[in-house]
Amino acid sequence: MSESVRFHFDVNGQSFTSAGQASVQVKKNLRELGIAPDVIRRVSIAMYEGEINMVIHAHGGEADVEVYEDRVVIILNDHGPGIKDVELAMKEGYSTAPDNIRSLGFGAGMGLPNMKRYTDEMKIDTELGVGTKITMTVRF
């Protein structure tokens, strides 16, 4: 069986008020599909961090979630500035977020590291001035 269940979301880059809507919806959908709570937690946290990153750095983007028999795949796509130094961006505590974002409790430099920590695989395709695509897989 290679059939998957798919969800698609547009991540609004205009405000933090709506940030997290896609992740919260995914959490609900996965629960309805009977996915294990630990998997749901990992998927929704990784996706939330990705959503926040898209709002902070890329004026929003798109999120696709594919649920297979043995894994969940999350694909985040944006047309933001791209990541200059991926290795540096992966370091805990490194952040390029502006001060107003920090005052909201974000910008601690934990976003990408958390996404990696909570998923089994993470692939970053990024090009300066073009955008970033992040593919994450959580296995059951």
Binding site: G20, V24, S44, Y48, I52, L104
Partner: peptide, 11 residues
């Protein structure tokens, strides 16, 4: 701020 609700929901 509003994001605490999302964090509480996800955790």
């Amino acid at each position: 701020n509003i994001n605490i609700v999302a964090v509480a929901t996800l955790c």
